[in-house]
Design a protein around this nucleic acid. Structure first.
Length: 269
DNA sequence: CGGTCTACCTGAAAGC
DNA sequence: TGCTTTCAGGTAGACC
């Protein structure tokens, strides 16, 4: 998926077209996403979208009757197009707008989700989430305390939604490289000092990726269809065997939790 | 409880 | 060329 920067780029991209605009029609072309898309989503029809928020990698389109919750999974993508444009393969959910535009959720793998939350409710998926990385709620002392006695490798630890939300495989690899921390190091054995280095690096990396329009690997695009440009700044992800930008040693790849993990054995300890 | 692994799904790329 | 295998940005839920 899109990690947090890609979701935030999507939010920023759709906002001018969708916020304060009336949804005239909701079309569910394929309701079998990660969970069945509930009919509640049709409640948005005829109503104005009054808020567009992001929590972790979830987007919430709010109206007076509740909120549509969207998740992009691994391959999801939001596009704003003219409503008369033909549907593309895997365009599963469509919000037709009074303006003549349409917001479409395309997701080849269907790991994404489209759910509903009534006013005042907090969906169970959202209740156990940890702090947002780009807020002051995410700070080194908190991460350090939470990590004590944890044997899990630090890479998997920072990808844990209960620790901090929004850090996926790409940005976990990148952040640990920049912080000089070996991805396999036990989370409980990383010092406070090193978490004080790592936490700001995670924040800076995510913020820079948002500025660049996210990372386009295969199918991610901004809501206007243009790619993100952060891929050009990736230092380790997808660079197995290539020279480390710092020491020129070939980068190594291992698997942690079934996820590709690229690092420099010389620079990361 | 903590830690580990599977499952969900399509499609591109690599392997043979 | 074509068939098979592997891998991909996520993460809830099952399992030990």
């Amino acid at each position: 998926m899109p990690e947090l920067p890609e979701v935030e780029v999507s939010r920023l991209g759709i906002t001018p077209h969708v916020l304060d605009h009336v949804v005239t029609k909701v079309n569910i072309h394929n309701a079998s996403m990660r969970w069945p898309v509930p009919d509640d989503v049709y409640q948005l029809q005829g109503l104005k979208v009054t808020s567009i928020e992001r929590r972790a990698k979830y987007l919430l389109l709010g109206c007076e009757r509740g909120s549509v919750i969207l998740h992009l999974g691994m391959s999801g993508n939001l596009r704003v197009v003219n409503a008369d444009e033909p549907l593309k393969k895997h365009d599963h959910i469509e919000f037709v707008l009074e303006s003549g535009k349409a917001l479409r959720l395309n997701d080849a793998r269907r790991f994404g989700a489209c759910l509903w939350q009534a006013p005042g409710e907090c969906h169970t998926l959202l209740t156990k989430l940890g702090p947002e990385p780009l807020t002051d709620d995410f700070f080194a002392e908190r991460v350090y305390e939470q990590s004590r006695n944890k044997k899990v490798p630090v890479k998997q630890f920072i990808m844990d939604n209960a620790v901090v939300v929004g850090v996926g495989n790409i940005y976990a690899n990148e952040s640990l490289f920049k912080a000089g921390i070996h991805p396999k190091r036990e989370a409980g054995k990383v010092s406070l000092k090193r978490y004080q280095q790592l936490v700001p690096i995670i924040k800076d990396t995510l913020a820079a990726a948002i500025t660049q329009g996210g990372t386009t690997l295969k199918d991610f695009a901004q809501s206007d269809g243009k790619p993100g440009y952060f891929a050009q700044q990736l230092l380790v992800y997808g660079r197995k065997g290539e020279p480390c930008v710092t020491c020129k040693e070939p980068l190594k790849e291992i698997r942690l939790g079934q996820r590709s993990t690229v690092f420099c054995a010389n620079c990361q300890k």
